[in-house]
Write a protein that binds this DNA or RNA. Sequence first.
DNA 1: AATCTTCTCAACCGCCTCAAT
DNA 2: GATTGAGGCGGTTGAGAAGAT
Length: 404
Amino acid sequence: MGRSPCCDKVGLKKGPWTPEEDQKLLAYIEEHGHGSWRALPAKAGLQRCGKSCRLRWTNYLRPDIKRGKFSLQEEQTIIQLHALLGNRWSAIATHLPKRTDNEIKNYWNTHLKKRLAKMGIDPVTHKPKNDTLLSSDGQSKNAANLSHMAQWESARLEAEARLVRESKLRSHSFQEQLSPAGYVSGSGSGSVSASASTLAQQQRSVDVLKAWNGGWSKSSEGNIGNGLNTTGIGGDHLESPTSTLTFSENAPPPIMNSSGIGGDNSIPMIELVETSGSSETGIIKGEHDWKTLGNSSHHHHHHMPENSVSFTSSLHHPDMTISMEGPWSPESLRLNSSHIHAGNVVEEGFTNLLLSDSGDRLSDSGKESDNSGGSGSDYYEDNKNYWNSILNLVNSSPTDSPMF
DNA sequence: AATCTTCTCAACCGCCTCAAT
DNA sequence: GATTGAGGCGGTTGAGAAGAT
């Protein structure tokens, strides 16, 4: 039964790697590939366990690792993805090519988490810790937005599970595509065969989550304010292996009965309704009721069907009504956020509801809209409007956050 | 310059999943 | 179906670096 016994673990070295050890490991893998990590140390002449070798390789020696300071774009991406995925460092790392999960994890723990906390945002939930701490200035507006956006939590979890799963699948397929030596580990770096546009769309999807990080942007740096293309990944040669699926290719009809996240035909229906109807100050008053109508209580599905969650969403406001029906998946977010044009009715209305200190920045997002030749169906139109509004919210983030 | 404190991050640990047997 | 090991992941640690006193 089972396999042959594991290594005896006697006399194996631990602790920091020496340059000589690095050289041995590097030389061996360059010539033979890593193959079985279990067997590698003996073959390479190393007094280490395979696990230690694998870790050293994936976190340090791998040639496609980018080291050094994280760019602002990378920071944003990490935060966005963390809002989406939680502490799924490996999944996050698939969106940050050349960065290891370990490095991202460290960076989060040592830098980003503290910064969010400093902003009054719970780094775990990405929700404002205490709204009352914030005065009635722009910051409180932002906090209000964050609070509302935080209502996406349940849907987020659905997307999370799917994304993680896809990332894993992609990593597998990657390895098969790579060198015969099976060079790249599952952390997801490496070349990608997917089209650039698809990858860009993938990345943009995450921008929806900028709403969670509304206080981040600083227009004076990098591409901040560039709306749909600020994630560093999209603009930094994203090679995300997360998914090669695209909505247009795989999307079911507008109302798709997902085969049941969790296998129960659940269709989480999210409805956003403004019940107060008051927004004279341009601030959402906190009366949007986000309702999860379907059964979305089973949040952590690690074995989900390919099809994603369906949802219906609508936002009622004196100035507008936003509605959306359709499958909610990373792909759908991608599609919609990449098919956005600035300056439509929804933008106007939603912008008025939300922070609007930088409405002109919205125009930047138009740069990304050149591939918006979607089907033109109502479905896509609705999606477009919906996500446009979300992205507009994102783009309305203060540009002069005192935190940065 | 010396000491103390805080920060950083490479590496380890333990658990989980999946595939092999 | 049960058992086992490999690979992978996330949490945590601790040595060294950097900063403060």
